[in-house]
């Protein structure tokens, strides 16, 4: 695949999508973009740093809650987005500092516990969050350029807004991975001890990539609350963490395009089984398990491995050994 051709083509197709006139396609694509942003973030910490974080769902939900609460209290969407991202980044910084010296499954369990703790707080602290009653009537964002105000309340407008956000976040994601920072976290993933002996401050880089992953999640969450207009404590539950994890693993942890492919599959499953909601978890579980058993490197990882067997080159930051 030649990314210099594929990426612009997809972007042009995405720009043209509203021409189909199908508000259903636009709605799904908007949700796909939101989930992809959160999955990209998770890929930074899982795929590139090699730390199995299970707090992504809580960061996503927390981003949604903080920004929605501020917007409902008269803030503009953009300033509340900034505050939400800063708040979630600070929370992630503290959680990261506490948990990232734990290794492997211990780290995963600790982050899962923090996910449950955040959920419990959002669900039970109803003086602030309104608890299980949820938040309603979250207004859509608007922007003012030279006296002309553009509202993103329509499906189509919001879709173009999200497309712009996706491009910005993808570029950010690309810069993080391709920068020297990216090569250091990959070094940590491949051999922690060696990286430490080479002078890498493990905690600093692990916490930094944990915070980056949380920033992506909170951006996604904030836009989700503005798009859907109502949120409930369930949004912070670890079910979302597992869904993002499924997307990253299925798409290919540690590959740039993995989160896009994986999220496409997860979103599709959710939509196909929307009327049969009771089967969603079952199907997701089956897809997840089949992926880990038969394709542990995910769609993109397997694609690159096949290519490497035929003499092609592995991408620079691909996972070398087994996942």
């Amino acid at each position: 695949m030649n990314w210099k051709i594929v990426c612009p083509t997809i972007l042009v197709l995405a720009l043209l999508l509203p021409l189909t006139g199908s508000s259903y396609a636009i709605r799904i694509s908007t949700l796909f973009i939101i989930y992809t942003i959160a999955a990209m973030g998770l890929n930074i910490i899982i795929g590139y740093t090699g730390q199995a974080s299970l707090t992504q769902g809580a960061f996503y939900g927390l981003g949604a809650y903080v920004s929605a609460l501020l917007v409902l209290n008269g803030w503009s969407f953009w300033s509340s987005l900034v505050v939400a991202v800063a708040f979630v980044a600070a929370v992630a910084f503290l959680i990261g500092l506490m948990t990232l010296r734990l290794k492997g499954a211990y780290f995963a369990i600790a982050t899962l516990l923090f996910n449950v703790i955040i959920y419990e707080i959002v669900d039970k602290w109803d003086e602030v969050t309104r608890g299980p009653r949820g938040l309603f009537g979250i207004p859509s964002p608007a922007i003012e350029i030279g006296g002309v105000s553009i509202s993103f309340s329509g499906t189509q407008n919001f879709y173009y807004l999200m497309l712009a956000v996706l491009v910005i976040m993808t570029v950010l994601y690309w810069i993080i991975i391709k920068s020297p920072f990216g090569s250091i976290i990959v070094a940590i993933r491949e051999n922690e001890l060696l990286a430490e002996y080479a002078g890498v401050n493990l905690t600093k880089f692990k916490v930094a990539s944990f915070v980056f992953s949380a920033i992506f999640a909170s951006v996604a969450g904030a836009f989700y609350s503005a798009y859907i207009g109502s949120i409930f404590p369930d949004i912070t539950s670890f079910v979302n963490s597992f869904a993002f994890l499924t997307a990253v693993i299925f798409g290919g942890a540690g590959t740039l395009a993995g989160p896009f492919v994986g999220t496409a599959v997860v979103t599709l499953i959710n939509e196909v089984f929307f009327t049969l909601a009771q089967y969603t978890v079952l199907i997701q579980g089956i897809v997840f398990l089949l992926a880990i058993l038969f394709m542990p490197k995910g769609v993109m990882g397997t694609y690159y491995s096949r290519k490497a067997e035929k003499g092609g080159e592995l991408p620079k930051r691909a996972i070398m050994g087994k996942l």
């Binding site: 199995a52 994890l245 693993i249 978890v281 579980g285 992926a291």
Partner: peptide, 12 residues
């Protein structure tokens, strides 16, 4: 990670 998949599958 496979165990998490199994968890989802059994609950589903």
């Amino acid at each position: 990670i496979a165990a998490i998949g199994l968890l989802m599958l059994l609950e589903g």
